[in-house]
Write a protein that binds this DNA or RNA. Structure first.
Ligand SMILES: [Mn+2]
Ligand SMILES: [Mn+2]
Ligand SMILES: [Zn+2]
Ligand SMILES: [Zn+2]
Lengths: 143, 143
DNA sequence: TTGAAATTGAGAATCAATCTCAAATATGGA
DNA sequence: TCCATATTTGAGATTGATTCTCAATTTCAA
């Protein structure tokens, strides 16, 4: 399914459907959570498949443009991605203490953002809401 | 005022109040909008003052920890900062077309986030909401 | 099957940010 | 004021994620 979408996207832009892009797409969707480009690259090599780092980065950018995946966050240790196709859109709470990530979704929040955009004559396309703080466990440990 | 706060922060951590830190703090607050470390560094040199790049980066991190400034966004071309002390908290809309940034604040949005955190037993400390899309002007130009 | 155009990959390049460590400095006490 | 010492500074090196280069390979419409 995601393969159909990606290939269609490529065709429309006069770009080509290659083995490497197929491999990268497939392995991207083998992740159920967040992942970074380097570990995706290693996962590809582990399975005996082939695609270079350069192609991994290039293809991740294409997959973002195409809307199948999203950048979750850009930390000092690189970028985290996740696929959005199949998973609904959601936002993240990041624990400063232990690094754990809570995913959440709120219809109210989405609606409110739409209203705010309208108020500014801004046409929202995507957004990232990242709430940093302390998860339940880390709050306890502090005491 | 911000100087008082910063010095108190340093003292509490057993860190020292140095000329370089004072210069960097002062020039940081000479910006009324967003800025990046390199241009802050250049602005310092232009005025004949001195502080190395290393100290600029180190001090910006301290100022973040201390809460006087915040990271606005981490782009491919580096990190943008702004001071929060004196300015109220706000979030950003980023135009994909022209790079312009709209600042906005919504009491409803803040309240809603608090509720969402409570629901997850998460203790929110800071957050970043970045809405990417097209500003008024870029919407027109597209047609 | 062909050929123009797109893509790939190994390694080089880029560049923000951090690190190194000897020299300089801040600070609390004598 | 002077001292002892822990902290900070800065020039340049280093790191590390990401992008770039470009010759060789591959795609795909005709
Ligand atoms: Mn997620
Ligand atoms: Mn701002
Ligand atoms: Zn935690
Ligand atoms: Zn614009």
């Amino acid at each position: 399914m995601e393969k159909k979408i990606f290939n269609k996207f490529l065709k429309e832009r006069g770009q080509r459907v290659t083995k490497e892009r197929a491999v990268i797409l497939q392995k991207t969707f083998s992740y159920h959570g967040h992942f970074d480009p380097e570990s995706l690259y290693l996962r590809i090599r582990e399975t005996g498949l082939k695609a270079s780092r350069a192609s991994v980065y290039r293809t991740l950018n294409l997959l973002c443009e195409c809307g199948l995946i999203e950048r979750v966050t850009k930390t000092e240790r690189g970028t985290l991605y996740e696929h959005t196709f199949g998973h609904g859109h959601h936002d993240h709470m990041l624990c400063i203490g232990c690094g754990s990530i809570i995913e959440f979704y709120s219809e109210d929040l989405e609606r409110l953002q739409d209203n705010l955009c309208r108020k500014q004559d801004f046409k929202g396309v995507t957004h990232t809401l990242e709430i940093r703080g302390y998860c339940k466990r880390c709050q306890k440990n502090k005491k």
